[in-house]
């Protein structure tokens, strides 16, 4: 569960990235976060991870008041949230297996648990056979799968993805999105910031649309653009 109450985010350079955000995302939901570049999507996700703090307002994640959380508790918050980025962010000198296992090692998980969970996560993203390969030997889509496996290996209750398909071709983008839907179907809350119009339109999930820092639309079974403004072209 994620809840923003009257949240405002002003960066030190006086850019108002988010303003008066009130939104609630329930457990198990799948949400697309859309809007033009600079509309505040990444800032929204950063607030969930407490990478940034809101200037005003309150944020709850999994029942914790993130906006009031102590710095030293941040790691434990992040362990309950899986993250996937546009640029994959894998460790280049670790194998696929080690990249995924690493997310468990930092939680001091039992080796037995690691040996059980990592192959399961790799199986889920369809990369079991590439476990001992290094990231630079993989295609972009495969690298992003590794990132997804790493994000879910600790069984987080929330999965956040910031333009996960931004660096991928359309076909691969579809595969990654379907993977995120699979993960959502297993009970994980998923929030995806994206520009993929056709994918958003055909998946018919909840769509939250940001424009210059405010929510201008929040639709169940929504589309990328507002109904009736089909002709208007967004970036």
């Amino acid at each position: 569960m994620i809840e923003f109450i009257k949240v405002k985010k002003v960066y030190p350079n006086d850019v108002v990235a988010l303003n008066n955000i009130n939104v609630k995302i329930n457990k198990g939901e799948f949400v697309f976060l859309v809007g033009q570049s600079g509309s505040g999507k990444s800032t929204f996700l950063k607030l969930i991870l407490k990478e940034e703090d809101p200037t005003e307002g309150t944020i709850f994640v999994n029942g914790y008041e993130v906006s009031a959380m102590k710095r030293r508790d941040i790691p434990y918050l992040r362990r309950s949230i899986g993250v996937v980025f546009q640029d994959f962010r894998l460790l280049p000198d670790k194998t696929v297996y080690e990249n995924v296992a690493f997310a468990m090692r930092i939680t001091e998980a039992l080796p037995k648990e690691i040996r059980r969970q990592v192959p399961m996560a790799l199986g889920l993203v369809g990369l079991s056979r590439k476990a001992n390969v290094f990231p630079n030997q993989l295609s972009g889509g495969e690298q992003q799968r590794v990132a997804v496996a790493r994000a879910i290996v600790n069984n987080p209750s929330i999965l956040i993805a910031d333009e996960p398909t931004g660096n991928l071709d359309p076909e691969t983008s579809w595969e990654i999105m379907k993977l995120l839907v699979d993960i959502n179907n297993r009970g994980t809350t998923v929030v995806v910031a994206t520009h993929e119009k056709s994918i958003v339109d055909s998946l018919k999930k909840r769509v939250i649309c940001l424009d210059r820092g405010t929510i201008i639309r929040d639709q169940q079974k929504g589309t990328y653009e507002n109904e009736g403004t089909h002709n208007k072209i967004y970036i």
Binding site: L49, P75, V83
Partner: peptide
């Protein structure tokens, strides 16, 4: 990356 995946 370590910070994002919750390393102390």
């Amino acid at each position: 990356i370590m910070k994002y995946i919750g390393a102390t």
